Computed example of a mutant assay.
Amino acid sequence: MEDILRPIYQERASHDNTLGIIKIEKKHKAATLTDNFDVILLMIVKEQTKPIYIKHYQYEDKKAALHIVSEQQLKEWLLLGSNRKIVEWIYEGKILFDRNDYMEDLRNELKDFPFYGRKIKIGLEFAKLIKRYMDGKAFFETGQYLDAFNHIVHSLHHLGRLSIIENGYHPELTVWNQVKQIEPEIFKLYEELIKSEEPIEKRLELLFLASEFLIFSRTPVGAEHLLEVMETRDQWSMDEISNHLEIVHYGVDFSLLLEYLIEKDFIQVVEIETKGSGLFHRCYRIEK
């Protein structure tokens, strides 16, 4: 099929806007990596009107997809971890075109996993973990065990991804294979939740107790990025900190993360008087 697709990518490779093109072929053991397409062509461009442009092709019994992605969109995915397939595409793909070693340099950067990028990723993953854990606990306390189960499974998933990132690796699509090697304690918790024959209420009760310690022990690392940002000023209003250039990426997970860090004495609430009697503005600073 490559002969059929060659004119598509060769013509685009001649454009100055094109930075690199890689090909990812379907492997039977991981067909979902290519969304069940036989071939994915990933093209990175400096800029385009839409951040992502996708075209599908059919040739006899084969199907292919062309993904044209702006460099800015690619960087956002890599920073936020919001497209997990993209890392494996870059790792696994065959480089067809590489302007000034752009794709090769990108691969090397991903392998090195710069500490600064890792710190942001840890913060974002920790925020997701706290959100899922707190929501799951709230459902458990009101007797909604199936909803609590759903949230605690997701929280363990985020805990596993967090441990992988801490150890300097990018989480793969098959994250539990990585967790089993890197953090067997978390893997064991996950297995106990899924495979145990105990009633669901009992399983959840035991898991919340075990998770509480694991989460708290990771709080200094998980909150490091946020706390470093907050150290740059004496105090912050909610609007100021939530709209900070880096913290804005935490999105809907941020509010619960903030409350968790207040509860655990990492962040202090500062009350500032308003014109209303007994009413205060609520601001935040690093616990001193």
Rank of each mutant, 00 (worst) to 15 (best):
F97K: 05
D112N: 12
E109Q: 15
I54V: 14
R99Q: 14
R84V: 08
S70G: 12
L110G: 05
G93K: 01
D98C: 13
I95M: 11
S82F: 03
I95H: 12
F113Q: 03
I54P: 01
E109M: 10
I52D: 05
F97T: 12
Y53G: 06
L106I: 06
D61Q: 11
L79A: 14
Y59I: 14
V69H: 07
Y59P: 01
Y102R: 01
D105K: 15
L79V: 02
Y91F: 13
Y91K: 15
L74S: 07
L79H: 07
I95V: 15
W77R: 10
A64K: 04
L110N: 03
D112P: 00
Y57S: 00
Y116P: 10
I54M: 11
E92N: 14
K62P: 00
W89Y: 06
I86V: 13
I52C: 06
E76Y: 04
N100W: 00
W77P: 13
K85E: 14
L79P: 04
R84F: 07
L80S: 09
V87P: 04
I52H: 08
L110Y: 01
G93E: 01
K111Q: 15
I95P: 11
K94N: 05
S70W: 11
L78Q: 01
L78S: 02
Y53K: 10
D61N: 12
I52W: 12
I68C: 15
I90T: 01
K111G: 00
R84P: 06
K111E: 13
F113K: 05
F113I: 03
S82D: 10
F97G: 08
N83W: 11
K55H: 01
P114G: 03
L106W: 05
H56D: 13
L78T: 04
K111T: 15
H56M: 08
F115K: 09
P114L: 03
H67C: 14
I95S: 04
Y59Q: 08
S82T: 15
E104L: 08
A65N: 00
A64H: 03
M103W: 06
S70H: 09
K75F: 03
L78A: 01
I68K: 11
K63M: 03
E92P: 10
P114Q: 01
I86W: 09
L110Q: 02
K85Y: 13
K94H: 02
K75G: 01
L66I: 09
D98L: 10
S82W: 00
Y53Q: 12
D112E: 14
F97A: 10
Y116Q: 15
D105A: 12
I54K: 07
Y53N: 13
Y53W: 08
E92C: 09
I68A: 15
I68R: 14
Y102V: 07
D112G: 03
E76S: 09
D98W: 12
L106S: 02
K94F: 00
K75R: 02
L96F: 00
L80P: 09
D105Y: 14
Y53S: 14
H67L: 13
I68Y: 07
N100S: 04
S82Y: 00
R107G: 00
K63H: 06
Q72D: 04
M103C: 10
K94T: 04
K62H: 09
